[in-house]
Amino acid sequence: MTYSVAVSGASGYAGGEILRLLANHPDVEITTVTAHSNAGDPLVAHQPHLRGLRHLELQPTTPEVLAGHDIVFLALPHGQSGQYTDALDSVDLVIDAGADHRLTSSAAWDQFYGGEFHTPWTYGVPELLVDGVKQRENLVGATRIAAPGCNASTVSLSLVPGVAAGVIETDDIVSVLAVGPSGAGKSLKTHLLGAELIGSANPYAVGGTHRHIPEIQQALRGAGATDPRVSFTPVLVPMARGILATTTARIAPGATDAEIRAAWESAYGDETFVQLLPEGSHPRTADVTGANTALMSVTIDRAANRVIIVAAVDNLAKGTAGAAIQSMNIALGLEETTALTMNGVAP
């Protein structure tokens, strides 16, 4: 069976990455791409690298245009997906790459986003441990999927094995991330201009204000944490794509080095797209560019009584579009790895 697909927000970074990956998917046909201000333009005017889709023209983003497809991807700014999802009841599978359907707490939504709160959907991180099982089990047969926040899924995947195994404490977690500006979308903003980024590293959303914090806390609660406290500081760096997240947590009393290492080995030893590196090796963002792969190292610092997890992810691939398509494959009963690669692009 070939599934017809519509992708909204197709002129943006996330929409473009969804299209890049879907273009090589043997079980889907991209029939419709939509945008707002760019409607009426050829897709390649905004995604010139997608030469195989040069026949497509951007349509207006309306429920009428999106309806009538088997699968709809919503790659819209936060707060905009909800107005469409209620009108897409006839669509078998809808996947939202925005935040509108990620959070289960309306209070957290009000605090970090504001506006109308929408029903939470099945969270699209297959490798995440939730209530003792992998999230992929919950994705089987799902009809509504919330793709993750790129920073949130990177930090959550870093921490959840240790939380679930009880080898780290969750009341003093610190995460500092080097991130590429593509995660902020294509909107023209002064702090995202090349002249502002090149040769500089710029922290933002400092002091507990980043919108991905409640998403991380939600994932940690799903792994067994009761009151997780996360100090989260992203830093914009001059690379188009990528996240390098360095996350530390206190070692739980009595946890041995072997038990700590075993927690991550057990969680990810059989995973294709989340890979734990050998002791002493650490990931680089360059090694995951264009790949649906999260590379991770776990280091034990007994002098500081902390575990240090370093994770590298391509924010547009595994962080967003790759996770969405991987979740789509699971929901439809397709091979999970279809159209996704673990191989990065180098140099």
Rank of each mutant, 00 (worst) to 15 (best):
V91A: 04
A324R: 10
A303Q: 12
E259V: 01
A152G: 12
Q59V: 03
T2A: 12
T143L: 09
D270R: 07
Q275P: 02
P48M: 02
N202I: 15
T293V: 08
A249C: 12
V230Q: 02
G183F: 02
T209F: 08
T154W: 02
P126Q: 13
G224K: 04
T247G: 11
T289E: 07
L295G: 05
N24V: 02
I95G: 08
A108D: 15
I300P: 03
D110F: 01
D171C: 03
L58V: 04
E196K: 09
G199Q: 06
P148T: 12
A108R: 09
V345E: 06
G12T: 00
A142V: 08
S281E: 15
V5F: 10
S200H: 15
Q80H: 15
V65F: 12
I325E: 11
D172H: 13
A303I: 07
V163A: 04
L22P: 01
G199V: 04
S153T: 15
E215Y: 08
V176Q: 12
E271W: 10
N315P: 02
D270I: 03
A346Y: 13
I145C: 10
D86H: 14
G124Y: 10
A267T: 06
A263F: 01
A262K: 09
T119N: 12
T293L: 15
A6W: 12
P238Y: 09
L93K: 08
